[in-house]
Lab assay of single mutants.
Amino acid sequence: LETFPLDVLVNTAAEDLPRGVDPSRKENYLSDEDFKAVFGMTRSAFANLPLWKQQNLKKEKGLF
C-alpha cells in the first residue's frame, strides 16, 4: 500500500485525496512512523480498539 505524508491526508476532502486513497481509511496510508506519531500507538494496538474509539481518534486527528 502506498503511503502519503500526513499533511496530504489530514483534513482533506475525499475529492482532494491522491488517486486510490480510500477516504474512510486514511490512516492506512500513513507510514508506520507517522501513524505512531499521530495516534501514539502501533497499528495493531489501534486495530484492537473498539470501532467507536478508532473513529473518535480519527476525528480528533483530522483523518475521518
Results as ranks from 00 to 15, higher is better:
Ala13Gln: 11
Asn28Phe: 09
Ala37Ile: 13
Pro5Ile: 04
Asn28Cys: 11
Phe4Ile: 08
Phe46Thr: 00
Glu2Cys: 09
Val38Phe: 05
Pro23His: 07
Phe35Leu: 03
Leu57Met: 12
Ala14Val: 12
Gly20Leu: 04
Phe39Gln: 00
Val8Cys: 08
Phe46His: 00
Val8Ile: 13
Ala47Val: 14
Lys58Ala: 04
Phe39Tyr: 02
Leu51Tyr: 11
Asp16Trp: 05
Leu57Asn: 03
Leu63Met: 07
Ser24Asn: 14
Arg43Phe: 09
Glu60Lys: 10
Ala37Arg: 10
Leu63Gln: 02
Trp52Gln: 10
Asp22Gly: 01
Asp34Thr: 07
Val10His: 05
Lys58Phe: 01
Asp16Gly: 07
Leu49Trp: 05
Glu27Lys: 00
Ala13Ser: 12
Trp52Ala: 10
Asn28Ile: 10
Ala47Leu: 11
Pro23Ser: 07
Gly20Met: 05
Ala13Val: 08
Thr12Ala: 10
Thr3Val: 13
Thr12Leu: 08
Ser44Gln: 14
Trp52His: 11
Ser24Pro: 02
Phe46Ala: 00
Gly20Lys: 05
Asn56Gly: 10
Thr3Asp: 03
Ser44Tyr: 13
Phe64Pro: 04
Leu9Gly: 02
Asn28Lys: 08
Arg25Val: 08
Ser44Arg: 13
Ser31Trp: 02
Glu33Thr: 13
Gln54Pro: 00
Ala13Asp: 10
Val8Trp: 11
Ala45Met: 12
Arg19Val: 15
Asp34Gln: 08
Val38Met: 06
Lys59Trp: 10
Glu15Ile: 09
Thr12Trp: 09
Asn28Leu: 14
Ala37Asp: 12
Leu57Ser: 04
Arg43Trp: 07
Glu27Thr: 01
Ser44Val: 15
Pro50Leu: 03
Val38Leu: 09
Glu2Ile: 14
Pro50Gly: 05
Asp7Lys: 09
Pro23Cys: 06
Pro5Ala: 07
Ala45His: 12
Leu63Gly: 01
Val21Ile: 10
Ala13Met: 08
Leu1Asn: 13
Gln55Phe: 08
Ser31Val: 04
Glu2Thr: 13
Gly40Thr: 06
Phe4Asp: 02
Gly40Asn: 15
Lys58Ser: 03
Thr42Lys: 08
Leu49Glu: 07
Asp32Tyr: 07
Met41Ile: 09
Asp7Phe: 10
Phe46Ile: 00
Asp7Pro: 06
Pro23Gly: 07
Asn48Ile: 12
Asn28Pro: 02
Asp34Glu: 08
Pro23Leu: 05
Pro50Val: 04
Leu6Thr: 04
Val10Glu: 05
Lys61Ala: 15
Val8Tyr: 15
Pro18Arg: 00
Arg19Ala: 15
Thr3Trp: 12
Asp22Ala: 02
Thr12Met: 09
Ala45Glu: 13
Leu57Cys: 05
Ala13His: 09
Gly40Tyr: 08
Asn48Lys: 13
Arg25Ala: 09
Leu1Tyr: 15
Leu30His: 00
Leu30Trp: 02
Asn48Gln: 13
Phe35Pro: 00
Arg19Thr: 15
Asp7His: 15
Ala37Phe: 14
Trp52Leu: 14
Trp52Val: 11
Gly40Phe: 08
Met41Arg: 02
Phe46Asn: 00
Lys53Phe: 14
Leu6Lys: 04
Thr3Leu: 07
Leu57Phe: 08
Ser31Glu: 04
Glu15Tyr: 04
Gln54Trp: 00
Asn56Ile: 13
Thr42Leu: 12
Pro23Tyr: 08
Leu17Glu: 04
Leu63Ala: 02
Tyr29Lys: 03
Phe35Ala: 00
Leu1Pro: 12
Glu33Gly: 10
Ala45Lys: 12
Leu17Pro: 06
Gly62His: 07
Pro5Asp: 06
Val21Pro: 04
Val10Asn: 04
Glu27Arg: 00
Thr12His: 07
Val8Pro: 01
Ala45Gly: 09
Leu9Trp: 01
Lys61Pro: 01
Glu33His: 14
Glu2Val: 15
Leu63Ser: 01
Asp32Phe: 07
Phe4Cys: 04
Glu15His: 08
Ala37Ser: 12
Asp22Pro: 01
Val21Asn: 03
Asn11Ile: 05
Leu57Ala: 07
Glu33Leu: 11
Leu51Trp: 11
Thr42His: 10
Lys36Thr: 14
Thr42Arg: 07
Asn48Cys: 11
Pro5Glu: 06
Val10Ile: 12
Leu17Val: 07
Arg25Cys: 11
Leu9Lys: 01
Met41Ser: 02
Glu33Cys: 09
Asn28Arg: 08
Leu49Met: 11
Pro23Ile: 07
Ala45Val: 13
Val21Ser: 03
Phe46Pro: 00
Gln54Thr: 01
Glu33Pro: 10
Glu27Asn: 01
Lys53Trp: 11
Gly40His: 14
Ser24Trp: 10
Lys61Met: 10
Lys59Gly: 07
Glu60Asp: 12
Arg25Trp: 07
Lys58Leu: 05
Ala37Cys: 10
Lys53Thr: 14
Glu2Pro: 15
Leu51Ala: 11
Thr3Asn: 05
Leu9Glu: 02
Val10Ala: 09
Pro5Lys: 05
Met41Trp: 03
Ala47Ser: 11
Val10Phe: 06
Phe4Ser: 02
Thr3Lys: 09
Asn48Leu: 13
Ser44Gly: 13
Leu17Met: 06
Asp7Gly: 09
Ala13Leu: 11
Val8Met: 15
Asn28Gly: 06
Leu1Ser: 12
Gly20Gln: 09
Leu30Lys: 01
Leu1His: 15
Asn48His: 13
Arg25Asp: 04
Leu30Gly: 01
Pro18Gln: 01
Leu30Thr: 01
Asp22Ile: 04
Gln55His: 11
Ala13Cys: 11
Asp22His: 04
Asp34Val: 08
Ala14Pro: 14
